[in-house]
């Protein structure tokens, strides 16, 4: 038995410690927003936050995740209102939508660490997330917008 803390909730899980976090989140806990895309840390569809970092859950074993603070796309915001989520919707970024949980989780780390990212910063941060539909132009636009929303929000506080 291990404890997994996902989206501020603790789950007691009886699973092999070698099981990747991805499958525990999806198949055992039942949160399906985190996606399987490649299984080898190539595509970024499975990105979750582990202690705030954008880890690839498909290669992160339960042994590493146990007892740590994990946030999935379902827990990123209260009401689909993280600046990245708001911007993604404003710019109509998703097509098929499958990769965007991971894209948004990656963008959220960028926005936290760099409130005013340049195009080059966006390229550096988002290079690990593949989108087969080709929404990259809109991802870039949405991250710039999200940064703006975030700055406004910070100024308002």
């Amino acid at each position: 038995m291990i404890n997994l803390n996902v989206n501020q909730k603790t789950y007691q899980i009886d699973a092999d410690l070698n099981m990747p976090l991805l499958w525990a989140i999806r198949d055992i806990i039942g949160l399906t927003g985190t996606k399987y895309g490649c299984g080898v840390a190539q595509c970024g569809a499975c990105v979750v936050h582990l202690n705030g970092e954008a880890v690839r859950s498909c290669v992160t074993k339960l042994s590493r995740a146990a007892g740590q603070k994990i946030v999935t796309i379902e827990g990123l915001s209260e009401n689909n209102n993280h600046p990245a989520q708001l911007a993604w919707n404003e710019e109509n970024v998703p097509q098929c939508g499958y990769c965007h949980s991971g894209q948004i989780m990656s963008a959220a780390v960028l926005l936290r660490e760099n409130p005013n990212p340049s195009d080059a910063d966006i390229d550096s941060a988002m290079a690990g997330n593949i989108c087969r539909c080709g929404t990259y132009l809109r991802i870039r636009k949405a991250i710039h917008l999200a940064a703006e929303l975030q700055r406004k929000e910070a100024a308002g506080k």
């Binding site: 999806r26 399906t32 993604w88 919707n89 970024v93 998703p94 939508g97 965007h100």
Partner: peptide, 19 residues
């Protein structure tokens, strides 16, 4: 007009086959 499926695809609630 904004797509009605966008919000479902930004918060993990859209149900794909694998979900």
């Amino acid at each position: 007009l904004s797509r009605q499926d966008s919000p479902l695809k930004t918060n993990g609630t859209a149900v794909f086959g694998l979900d």
